[in-house]
């Protein structure tokens, strides 16, 4: 479904040149959920942004659904690939109602049955029609993220790019959104690429994942390997350890992180 080969993303030139992504390759099959894990600055979000055209592809190839992507991306591309952003407080227009937010992609793509689609999208994300004419400030964080997911789903895409979809939410709300994403994927046969710094979240939602650091791929592994402690890389190990909570042992975590 998505094939990324030797992707490089470079920002700026000369002294300001930053190689945000260096030679990253991975393949995601249809219906699969793939995770990108790493700390801030590891380039994980840049990979997502490069796929959907928000960051430049300096070299390498991004193939979606068998076709190499073009710049600028075509309308067809956005019918196939949609994105959900981290902060629902920032990604919804504060002065647009839910109805207007959801009808915009439909208008852009000239979809006829907007009415039915909006109601269906709201149902899919577990909100009733009563939410249709509310403004973002009248919704809780979890409800806003549901609207952001509904907006992404309304064009019936095959691929959803999820950039830290739960890190701005409380733990109990995070569980609800993770369940929703899990359920939608199964029902609609979606393909996910999930970016997160939280190893447990990625392991929960994805089958396979790529650990990134300083713009490079460190290790590709699977969630089941993580569960059975099969991560071979030292850096991955340190991430696993950090996700278990604080330990008083003077671990060489810091050393590994600075390594």
């Amino acid at each position: 479904m998505i094939d990324i080969q030797n992707l490089n993303v470079v920002f700026g030139t000369g002294r300001l040149r930053v190689e945000a992504v260096k030679n990253v390759s991975f393949t995601v099959k249809q219906g699969e959920a793939y995770g990108l894990v790493g700390e801030s600055g590891s380039g994980k979000s840049t990979v997502l942004r490069a796929i959907c055209g928000l960051a430049p592809i300096s070299s390498g190839q991004v193939i979606v659904d068998g076709k190499p992507v073009t710049s600028p991306r075509t309308k067809d591309f956005y019918r196939t690939v949609q994105m959900v952003f981290q902060d629902p407080y920032a990604s919804l227009h504060p002065r647009h109602t839910v109805d207007r937010t959801l009808s915009e992609p439909l208008a852009i793509h000239g979809v006829k049955d907007a009415e039915a689609r909006i109601l269906q999208a709201l149902r899919e994300v577990g909100l009733g029609p009563s939410f249709r004419f509310r403004y973002p400030h009248q919704l809780s964080g979890g409800q806003r993220q549901r609207i952001a997911i509904a907006r992404a789903l309304i064009l019936r895409p095959k691929v959803l790019l999820l950039d830290e979809p739960t890190s701005a939410l409380d733990a109990s709300v995070q569980a609800e959104i993770l369940n929703l994403l899990d359920d939608l994927r199964r029902r609609l046969g979606l393909t996910y690429i999930l970016v997160s710094h939280d190893l447990a979240v990625v392991a929960h939602l994805c089958e396979r994942l790529l650990v990134m650091r300083h713009g490079e791929a460190v290790e590709e592994t699977s969630s089941s390997a993580l569960r059975s402690g099969g991560a071979s890389n030292e850096y991955t190990q340190s991430l696993i350890q950090a996700s278990q909570g604080f330990t008083r042992k003077p671990a060489d975590l810091a050393a590994a992180a600075n390594g």
Binding site: S172, N179, D182
Partner: peptide
Amino acid sequence: QGLMRCLPTLTNDVRPLPTL
């Protein structure tokens, strides 16, 4: 208890996650 349970963990795979 609810807060404890609703966190995804690396050690066991519960699906769907219990919500609060």
